[in-house]
Design a protein around this nucleic acid. Structure first.
Length: 367
DNA sequence: TGGATTTGACCTAG
DNA sequence: CTAGGTCAAATCCA
């Protein structure tokens, strides 16, 4: 990493500066009057800032290593970087590497070879769109399965561009048993398509949504407690308010961060890492220009757009592993707040853009 | 007519 | 063997 381009350097400076400022602020706050929550928030914020800076540096190294033979890349100690997200150990193996990474060795024998990470999304009840959690990509449902012990079936989605562009990204959406308003979304694989962020469910210039899933239509068919299709679409068009399992504190914590990503990567790269940077955007909906201030004391409502303005390549940051956040998911309210560093896959490959990342919709209809 | 969803069957990991 | 994951034909809908 002998050379840092000006953009990255700038971002690093910003991050580190923020960390310093927040540390100073925390010092000021360290008086008996200050609430522990405030201090905790500041600490989280500081840690997050440094994590981001480290992630940037990490990514740079990984990017460079990508030019090296595959073996060298996989053996990179960076895969064990504390910056990276907690490995999900779905049926974990004992090695330091994720199952995915190991599976790369013999992909022909194993079916699950893609990185996996999860997030919880709570859909604003007012939207009437239960489980419609869009991450900016267009998904096509290819299956639904009743899961043992779960009250609700699990829906399986894959990228719409699976055939046309060979995009292998998939996701699973399951409604939480504990809180039906919470949808556990598990992503697998990374998008090799470039539709990502600024396309997805973006609103077209004519006001209509792109990739409007027919899920909305079926919702109308199903009737029940769902609102009418017209209303549904209207809500979608207006930008679905999505509530993540993030405390207000978190919102405050991450509000100041702004990131965008300049993907550079190889589409073949299977391992991927999504730092809290993305979590900030995706989960916190932090400093989106269209961010809506929380309207309740315990919920984060925000619009689906998440502006990402810097040039931080993210999709090539390697995910430490295909981890399984199932345990985290099972306790939604504590998940995100305790671990803001989820892994996210955003295929922003080979795209240099300032984009509005949408989180607006994605219907999972489990009725 | 083409793309998306539904759903039963099939495949595979554990 | 079982449960989870995927396939693919049937169906729906704009």
């Amino acid at each position: 990493m002998e050379k840092v381009n000006p953009s990255e350097q700038k971002n690093l400076i910003i991050e580190l500066s923020q960390g310093r400022e927040m540390a100073n602020e925390l010092r000021k706050q360290l008086d008996p009057v200050t609430s522990p929550e405030t201090c905790e928030a500041l600490v989280e914020k500081i840690v997050s800032t440094y994590d981001k800076a480290l992630a940037m540096l990490t990514w740079r190294v990984l990017k460079e290593e990508e030019t090296l033979p595959e073996t060298g890349r996989k053996e990179s100690p960076l895969f064990h970087s504390p910056v990276l997200t907690t490995p999900i150990t779905e049926g974990s193996n004992s090695s330091g590497f994720s199952k995915d990474q190991e599976c790369n060795k013999d992909a022909s024998k194993k079916r699950k070879t893609l990185p996996k990470w999860s997030e919880n999304v709570r859909v604003c009840s007012a939207s009437g769109l239960e489980g419609h959690v869009d991450d900016g990509h267009s998904w096509r449902k290819y299956g639904q399965k009743d899961i043992l012990g779960a009250n609700f079936p699990r829906a399986y989605y894959r990228c719409t561009h699976r055939n046309s562009r060979g995009c292998l990204a998939t996701k699973q959406v399951q409604r939480s048993d504990e809180d039906p308003a919470v949808f556990e979304v598990t992503y697998k694989g990374r998008h090799s398509c470039i539709q990502a962020a600024n396309s997805g469910s973006a609103i077209r210039s004519d006001g209509k949504e792109m990739h409007k899933p027919k899920k909305a239509r079926s919702l109308a068919r199903e009737g029940g407690n769902q609102m009418g299709a017209e209303q549904t679409l209207q809500h979608l068009g207006q930008g679905l308010k999505v509530e993540t399992e993030v405390s207000k504190t978190k919102e405050e914590i991450f509000r100041s961060f702004s990131f965008s990503f300049k993907g550079v990567g190889s589409d073949i790269l299977e391992s991927q890492f999504f730092s809290d940077v993305m979590k900030d955007c995706d989960m916190m909906g932090s400093n989106s220009p269209t961010f809506l201030s929380p309207t309740t004391s315990e919920s984060n409502y925000f619009s689906s757009s998440c502006q990402m303005d810097n040039n931080f390549g993210i999709d090539n940051i390697l995910q430490t592993s295909e981890s399984d956040l199932t345990d985290m998911i099972s306790t939604p309210t504590s998940v995100i707040s305790s671990s803001p560093f989820g892994d996210h896959d955003f295929s922003i490959d080979q795209v240099d853009f300032d984009t509005s990342f949408t989180l607006d919709d994605d219907l999972a209809y489990f009725n």
